[in-house]
C-alpha cells in the first residue's frame, strides 16, 4: 500500500504542476494587457509601463510563473488587479455562496437519485423502471439554465413563493437559504438524473452476483436483498460520481449563478475574465482544477483501500 501511495502522490504532484503550467500559459498568451485594460484607451504609454512594473508584469515570464506558483502554495493568491484586494479574501467571500449552493445541490440530487435508482433496479423492465429511465433521459437533456428560468417563472413570478434572484448575505440566514433553493434545485435535477442512472446500473450488476442469489435463496425478496446487501456494494461507483459531481457543481454553477445574480465563485471568474483581472482568473481556475485532481486522488485511494486488486494495476 505504501508503494502505491507514493506512486499516486508523485503522479498527483505532476498533474498539479502540469495543470498550473497550462493555466498560466493559456492566460499569458491571451490577448489583452491587464495594465492597458485597467487604464483605458487614452492612457499614456509611460503610465501603462509604470503600472506594469507595479503589478510585476514587466518581469520575465518564468519568474512570474514561479512567483505565482510559490504564492499559491503558501496561500498567497496575489492581489486582484481590478479591486486591489487579496484574491484569497475574494475567493473566501465567494465560497460563502458557492459552497452552500454546491453542497445543497449535491444533497438534493442524492436525495432524489437514491430512491429513484433503487426503485428502477428493483423493478427492472417494469413500469416504475420505465418511468425513472424516461424521467432521467429528460433530466440529462435539460439545460440547467433553462430549468432555472422555468423554476423562476413558476415559483417566483407566478406563485411568489421564492425570490427570483439576488443574494441577501448570511446576516439573515433564512433569506439566504431561500435565495439558494431555486438555484440549487436547477443544479440538482440534471445531476440527479445522471446519479440515478449510475446507481441503477451498479445495482443491476450486483443483482447478478452470487451473494445476492444466496440472499434470495434464504428467502429475501429482490427488494430486501437489494437494500440489505446490494446498496452498500453499489455505493462505490456512486461515491466516485458524487465526488466528481461536487467539484463540477462548484465550477458548473457559473451559468446558474449568472441566471440568479448570485455573487459566487462562478460569477467571480466570469467578471474577472471580462475585466482582464488575470491573477484572479489564474488563481480561481487553478483552485478548481486542484479540487478536481485531489478529489480524484482521494477516490483512487478509497478504491485501493476497498479493493486490493487495484493497488497492483497499471
Amino acid at each position: 500500500m505504501m508503494g502505491y501511495l507514493l506512486k499516486r502522490l508523485a503522479s498527483l504532484a505532476v498533474s498539479l504542476l502540469a495543470a498550473s503550467l497550462v493555466i498560466f500559459l493559456v492566460v499569458e498568451v491571451a490577448p489583452g494587457d491587464p495594465a492597458s485594460f485597467m487604464l483605458g484607451m487614452n492612457a499614456r504609454p509611460d503610465t501603462v509601463a509604470a503600472l506594469r512594473a507595479e503589478l510585476g508584469l514587466d518581469l520575465p515570464v518564468h519568474l512570474r510563473y514561479l512567483d505565482w506558483l510559490g504564492g499559491m502554495l503558501t496561500g498567497d493568491f496575489g492581489i486582484s488587479y481590478t479591486y486591489r484586494t487579496p484574491v484569497a479574501q475574494m475567493v473566501a467571500d465567494r465560497l460563502a455562496v458557492s459552497l452552500p449552493l454546491a453542497a445543497g445541490a449535491l444533497a438534493l440530487s442524492t436525495l432524489i437519485a437514491l430512491p429513484a435508482g433503487l426503485i428502477a433496479a428493483a423493478r427492472r423492465g417494469r413500469a416504475p423502471d420505465m418511468a425513472v429511465m424516461g424521467a432521467t433521459q429528460l433530466g440529462i437533456a435539460l439545460p440547467n439554465f433553462w430549468l432555472a428560468l422555468l423554476l423562476v417563472l413558476l415559483f417566483a413570478l407566478k406563485l411568489h413563493w421564492l425570490p427570483a434572484g439576488g443574494f441577501p448575505g448570511w446576516e439573515d440566514p433564512a433569506a439566504a437559504l431561500r435565495a439558494l433553493i431555486l438555484p440549487a434545485t436547477a443544479l440538482a435535477l440534471p445531476q440527479a438524473a445522471i446519479l440515478a442512472r449510475v446507481l441503477r446500473s451498479a445495482l443491476l450488476d450486483i443483482l447478478a452476483e452470487e451473494f445476492i442469489r444466496t440472499a434470495r435463496a434464504k428467502g429475501l425478496s429482490r427488494g430486501q436483498a437489494l437494500l440489505r446487501h446490494g446498496l452498500r456494494n453499489a455505493l462505490i461507483p456512486v461515491l466516485t460520481i458524487l465526488g466528481l459531481q461536487f467539484s463540477f457543481l462548484l465550477a458548473g454553477a457559473i451559468i446558474i449563478e449568472q441566471v440568479f445574480f448570485l455573487p459566487g465563485l462562478g460569477r467571480l471568474i466570469f467578471q474577472a475574465i471580462t475585466q482582464r483581472d488575470l491573477i484572479v482568473v489564474e488563481s480561481v481556475v487553478l483552485l478548481l482544477v486542484f479540487a478536481v485532481i485531489v478529489v480524484n486522488f482521494l477516490t483512487d485511494l478509497a478504491y485501493a483501500a476497498a479493493d486490493p486488486r487495484l493497488r497492483h494495476r497499471r
Partner: peptide
C-alpha cells in the same frame, strides 16, 4: 490532465 479541468470554465476562459 484535460479531464481534470472543469470543461465549462475552460471553454468560457
Amino acid at each position: 490532465l484535460i479531464f481534470a479541468f472543469p470543461s465549462l470554465v475552460i471553454a468560457i476562459l
